[in-house]
Design a protein around this nucleic acid. Structure first.
Lengths: 153, 153
DNA sequence: GTATATGCAAAATATTTGCACGAAC
DNA sequence: GTTCGTGCAAATATTTTGCATATAC
């Protein structure tokens, strides 16, 4: 599971710009977070980070994820749960989600048409778009359910 | 602020069907909820309900809203807050939201094109759409900000 | 009269913060 | 050396549930 060097660079840059420090904890958290497994909760990030750097605390993960979120490097979601999940935010790119209520799978998709419509409605109401969340809750077509190995991806 | 008789009827029917009882508390909560002011939080519903029926408790509002949500009469949202807000669900109808980060206004819109695209992506991945949440976070175009009277609408 | 509902208060979840110690720059 | 970061534990915020009593049917 190779971590995106690009994302890591953006992280380093962001820290440097803000006069913040790159600690071993932040490095571990970033490695986990940018490594590819998506939509992790704070606890999941904590667990995986501890495997890299022992002794990391929940609060540090919490604060690091807030840092990433505010810096535009992460996006926070609440997929119908009462728990936040995070995914790497890749620059100007954004995608929407299909969330299967049967098997828990989360599939991402992008759609320019939807983007366009959003802009249109925003403009019509005197707004400009900052960001959006678009979550489509679905169920498996019978016989086509692909339950994941275990964890949600 | 006239309460929708249609919504009320659906509520009564739903209760009857499930063998549930129409209590004075549920009536008060439904009156508040279906009266038109949208996107209320549990506490807001509680407060307004208490004006109609004194002595209502938070747990009752909580359970009633869960009842409505599970029955398809209400939709739960978390507009970036860590607090749930509810809005009446009008049958097959669903709409999306523009949420202004500047002034807090929430504007609703409907878009068949977006619906269509959702269906398309779901089908392409072997799913069928159950429901969706589409929230577009926006900011006011300079000079066109219309800050609300106070409460969010 | 019986089954369901309510209110209270407690428990369970999640998030957020204060503070003394430690680490990065 | 100074500033920022961390971990722990406590404080908040929200949601959820247990249980004895009250109410709709």
């Amino acid at each position: 599971m190779a971590i995106s060097p690009l994302a890591m660079k953006r992280f380093r840059d962001h820290l440097a710009t803000q006069g913040l420090k790159l600690t071993s904890q932040r490095k571990a958290i970033a490695e986990v977070f940018f490594a590819g497994d998506k939509h992790l909760s704070l606890l999941e990030i904590l667990d995986q980070s501890k495997a890299i750097q022992r002794g990391i605390g929940y609060a540090t993960v919490y604060r690091t994820m807030r840092l990433l979120t505010e810096g535009g490097l992460a996006t926070e979601h609440k997929f119908g749960e009462n728990q936040a999940r995070y995914e790497p935010a890749i620059d100007g790119e954004h995608h929407d989600h299909l969330i299967c209520l049967d098997c828990g799978i989360i599939v991402e998709f992008e759609d320019d048409e939807v983007e366009k419509q959003q802009e249109k409605h925003a403009a019509a109401n005197g707004f400009s778009v900052v960001s959006h969340k678009h979550e489509v809750y679905v169920k498996c077509v019978p016989g086509r359910c692909r339950r994941p190995g275990g964890a949600r991806s």
